[in-house]
């Protein structure tokens, strides 16, 4: 019998790692990967919650989250490819031409 706190703590740690990656990395590919990690952390929390209350809804939600992540990843990769044509590298900070010019 696994206690629910362990996977929940793992999910929190994963989420924090993803967030850190999102804030710290400039490369868009890494940003995308960090988002995936955060999504997986959320999915893990669903499973844990399903386990805690003995409810299969958590697993259903995970399948949905995975679907969502796949779609989002495809879209994100397309955007990165499009962006690469313009700015020639993958620096997210360089893609700031939509900023409000003061």
């Amino acid at each position: 019998m696994i206690i629910w706190q362990t996977p929940a703590g793992l999910a929190l740690a994963l989420f924090m790692l993803g967030l850190l990656g999102l804030l710290a990395r400039r490369s868009l590919v890494f940003v995308l990967m960090s988002i995936e990690i955060m999504l997986n952390a959320a999915g893990l929390l669903f499973i844990t919650a399903g386990m805690r209350w003995g409810n299969p809804d958590g697993q259903i939600m995970l399948v949905m989250v995975l679907n969502l992540a796949g779609a989002e990843l495809a879209l994100g990769l397309i955007l990165i490819l499009r962006l690469r044509n313009r700015i020639t590298n993958l620096d997210g900070d360089a893609a700031n031409i939509l900023r409000d010019v003061p």
């Binding site: 804030l23 400039r26 940003v31 700031n96 900023r99």
Partner: peptide, 17 residues
């Protein structure tokens, strides 16, 4: 508020957080 719109995703993300 306008000064916050600098076009950097990481900054937006940190504000969201």
């Amino acid at each position: 508020l306008r000064a916050m719109q600098i076009g950097q995703i990481r900054r937006y993300a940190s504000w969201m957080m």
